[in-house]
Design a protein around this nucleic acid. Structure first.
Lengths: 195, 195
DNA sequence: CCTACCGATCGGTAGG
DNA sequence: CCTACCGATCGGTAGG
């Protein structure tokens, strides 16, 4: 028997269907059957592709976070390392700010992964990529003489942490303007390490 | 009919029972009946004190976060504002780091509150208290000539955000030592504003 | 023995 | 503050 569609593609469709329902109804209020129906598949068929609802969560989380990878890539085109990092910070915050439901889902995913040792490794992958991005950028900046030598990994983690942390604050506090926050991040995380 | 115990006390007992079960089994795997049994009450009785499972979550969250208030108070006794803020940063991180289950629960609570407009106000209360603490500290520091005048609210939010954000990183990344992280926070958030 | 599924139903639980 | 009980639903699995 020949598969109608490649496995990868099917997984992609299911993940997108899951995201649609998760964002509309929340994770806990979404049934596997609803996801299956939306993906044009049976529940039994869904379990052929995903071993559990948790793994659908992980897959949805990965897909939602893909946008962040794109922002990283675009940041590479900036004229200086400094501009690249600022570009990333601004667009990272902007993306989540413009997608509050995705942000709530992101936080739920983190919570789920933190409380489930089986899932923790997916979260580790997700964060180590982001930290590596900043580490690479800082190192490049040092190499190019833009930045002073410093503890690059520690800086990268603090910056990533502050970015993640600030998201939930910004969602409900309308006084917090994007430009203000970006300026803050520039003052705290970039200016001090500049040559 | 005379209540056997004051309402406040009963709510406290139930909240503690709920925390015990939440931390052991996770929020979603905890039934109202289990909480009730643990608190020595019936499920019907439990609903006399809490209108919904969500409100038990909020109450549990408040109680778990009480420790943070105590750290704030202790920080007031430090010899300088600088030392007080450092004391708070160190003990805030230490507390959550030593209680990873509580941290996972905290993140879950945030996620729940972000996705439920009804609950958002509880989260707002929770954060505005913390931001106010740092705002107060920074203002005092400026008054006493320890710190340079600067955008105090923005600094407070960025610092709080970074603190919250760094927690999830530290839980799984064992390379991240408390002292290192505290040093980072000092460099980024205190040294630059010192006179 | 493998793949890509399906219709039907299980044992157990939920908040109220 | 309880017993009794509801309408509905869940994630996951069976055989084919």
């Amino acid at each position: 028997m020949v598969p109608r569609k490649p496995r990868e593609e099917r997984i992609n469709e299911i993940t997108q269907a899951a995201i649609d329902v998760f964002l509309e109804k929340g994770y806990e209020n979404t049934t596997m059957d609803t996801i299956a129906k939306k993906a044009g598949i049976s529940k039994g068929g869904l379990y052929h592709y995903f071993p559990s609802k948790d793994m659908v969560l992980v897959s949805a989380n990965e897909k939602i976070s893909e946008k962040v990878g794109e922002i990283m890539e675009s940041a590479g085109c900036c004229s200086s390392v400094r501009e690249g990092i600022l570009y990333y910070i601004e667009n990272y915050i902007r993306y989540w700010l413009e997608h509050p439901k995705e942000t709530a889902f992101l936080f739920l995913s983190i919570a789920k992964m933190l409380e489930n040792p089986e899932l923790l490794k997916y979260y580790q992958q997700y964060t180590s990529d982001y930290v590596a991005f900043f580490e690479g950028a800082f190192n490049l900046g040092i190499q190019l003489g833009e930045f002073k030598p410093h503890n690059v990994k520690a800086s990268a983690i603090t910056l990533m942490a502050a970015l993640d942390g600030v998201l939930s604050y910004m969602i409900f506090d309308e006084e917090l303007v994007l430009e203000e926050v970006v300026k803050q991040f520039e003052e705290k995380f970039i200016t001090p390490i500049e040559v």
